[in-house]
Write a protein that binds this DNA or RNA. Structure first.
Lengths: 220, 220
DNA sequence: GAAATTATTTAAGTTTGCTTAAAAATAGAT
DNA sequence: ATCTATTTTTAAGCAAACTTAAATAATTTC
């Protein structure tokens, strides 16, 4: 069966909503995420339900069938592999790769993905620290906690980000943060969740609450 | 102005027809190349004429405007850069890259192309020996002649191919040919244009007329 | 140079993925 | 439990890029 780019995007959106909210995706939420009208969603979802890509219950919401889930996972795999390629090989800053990867992820060739994976050395995480599902669709899980929960004086490694929005990424990029950076917590305020850190043994940086809560680190 | 993927493909087809036949592209020829009906061509060409991408004269044919030519050249640049990436970096055999590059060439990012170009070291030719126009749209010209015109006993370098069809490429790939291969002409028949060559100092190969006429070489 | 063949265009219609506006169902407030 | 507000669906319609069938123009052939 042929899956269009638009359908792939719907599957991905439903997957991400389910992952975040842990429930069926509503028409309105999907419309918001996809940047279309709710009417378009109902329209499209009906067709995708006929194709057995999603389970649709009127006035309730949409979930993925196992077929739909497989396609969504594969799409995320492709997206994240391309993001890593763009950052590691083409030297793009990490806040500039999302839109390009949104296009690259739709290239239809399993061989291409397999070879790209090999070229990048079968990576487990993308440049933002998000896990790259393997060819079987398995995500690697890692231990992590927000920097806001960290202990003063301890040394951490930046492993991920809770938010991937452009401005946040650009801010971090400009400060010199990247996945794998070492972060030593010099000072912290339990009152307002700000912190002073030493980044990669080089620069002392003051961070506000929003930043410390969205940086995911692991010990040592 | 927004150019769709379909429009880009029309521009490329018109460019290639003009290059090969040295005249305006006819509706039927375009239909054949694009794999659509002649009626679709007329339909589309009219819209593209309104957009000043092509010059269209009813019942006569289509040529590119300078704007259209610029876009077509850029598309060829992108196509050939991606083909080189696929062969050199992802280790695809050269007969398997065309279709994937047909998709990759439509990714809309000038920055991506510039970085890919740099990553590949500003190459002048793709894996099939076709010239890659530079960022300004300039093609590199090189001296070349078909192997069928070569002289017995002389040593040559394979620089290009007259035909890029799948079966020809696969045949050559299976024999071990690639751009840059050394070819020594051991025997040749002026009667039927067959030849016996030494490829890369390793293997002696007998070639038929079609092959010798479609291999482009230069001396030494 | 008229008739026949071929090439091209026009006309009408299709599919995909979207839109707006109106109708219907659900959920929330009192 | 009813009224109101919100969400969702239905209906009608649009643009892009196709299709087939019919009409028209150009080219060949005799």
């Amino acid at each position: 069966m042929n899956i269009t780019n638009a359908e792939e995007n719907y599957l991905k959106a439903i997957f991400k909503i389910a992952e975040k909210e842990n429930k069926a995706a509503s028409t309105n939420k999907l419309a918001e995420v996809m940047g279309t009208s709710p009417a378009s969603i109902t329209d499209m979802i009906k067709k995708m339900s006929d194709k057995k890509l999603v389970n649709y219950t009127k006035y309730y919401g949409v979930t993925l069938t196992s077929e739909g889930s497989k396609i969504a996972t594969n799409l995320i795999r492709r997206h994240r592999l391309w993001e890593l390629f763009l950052v590691d090989k083409l030297r793009f800053p990490w806040h500039q790769v999302h839109n390009i990867a949104e296009e690259l992820e739709h290239i239809k060739s399993d061989d291409l993905v397999a070879r790209l994976d090999a070229f990048l050395n079968y990576p487990k995480f993308d440049p933002h620290g998000d896990p790259i599902p393997n060819a079987e669709g398995k995500f690697t899980i890692r231990s992590q906690s927000p920097l806001s929960d960290a202990r003063k004086g301890q040394k951490y490694v930046l492993v991920g980000l809770k938010e991937n929005n452009y401005d946040f990424l650009k801010f971090l990029y400009d400060q010199g943060f990247k996945i794998g950076s070492s972060i030593t917590l010099l000072e912290k305020s339990d009152y307002d969740h700000t912190a002073k850190i030493l980044l990669d043994g080089r620069s002392e940086i003051l961070l506000g609450a929003v930043v410390t809560q969205n940086l995911l680190v692991r010990n040592e």
